[in-house]
Amino acid sequence: MELMKKFWEKAKADVKKIVLPEGEEERNIIASAIVKKEGLAELILLGNAEKIKSKAKELNVDIEGIQIIDPAFSQKFSTYTKEFYELRKNKGITMEKSEKMVKDPMYFGTMMVKLGDADGLVSGAIHTTGDLLRPGLQVIKTAPGITTVSSFFVMLVPDCEYGSNGMFLFSDCAVNPNPTAEQLASIAISTAETAKNLFDMDPKVAMLSFSTKGSAEHEFVDKVRRATEIAKELRPDLQIDGELQLDAALVKKVAAQKAPESSVAGLANVLIFPDLQSGNIGYKLVQRLAKAEAIGPICQGFAKPINDLSRGCSAEDIVNVVAITAVQAQNIIK
Rank of each mutant, 00 (worst) to 15 (best):
L121P: 05
V102W: 00
E25Q: 07
E50C: 09
K291E: 13
P203E: 01
L3I: 13
L40M: 08
K6W: 11
A216R: 07
E182I: 11
G266N: 02
E99Y: 13
A329L: 04
R226S: 10
A227C: 06
N28F: 12
Q239V: 12
A256I: 03
M95C: 03
A41C: 12
P305N: 07
G282T: 10
N280C: 12
I272V: 15
E161C: 14
Q138E: 14
S262V: 03
C299W: 05
D117G: 06
D275F: 05
I324N: 01
E26I: 13
D172M: 06
G166S: 14
E24W: 02
Q183D: 11
V102I: 15
G39M: 06
A33H: 01
Q245N: 06
L87P: 07
G116P: 07
L115Q: 13
E96D: 14
K223R: 08
W8R: 09
D119V: 10
K141N: 15
V254S: 05
L184K: 02
L309T: 02
Q328P: 05
M155S: 04
F77P: 11
Q138K: 12
V270P: 00
T194D: 05
M106C: 08
E38M: 14
P203D: 01
G47D: 05
E83C: 07
A188Y: 00
V139P: 02
G145A: 09
L137I: 14
F77I: 15
A256E: 10
F153H: 08
H218F: 07
K252Q: 12
I295N: 00
Y283C: 10
Q75W: 10
R226F: 12
A231G: 10
D222L: 10
V102P: 02
L132M: 14
E64N: 14
L137A: 08
G279W: 01
V224F: 01
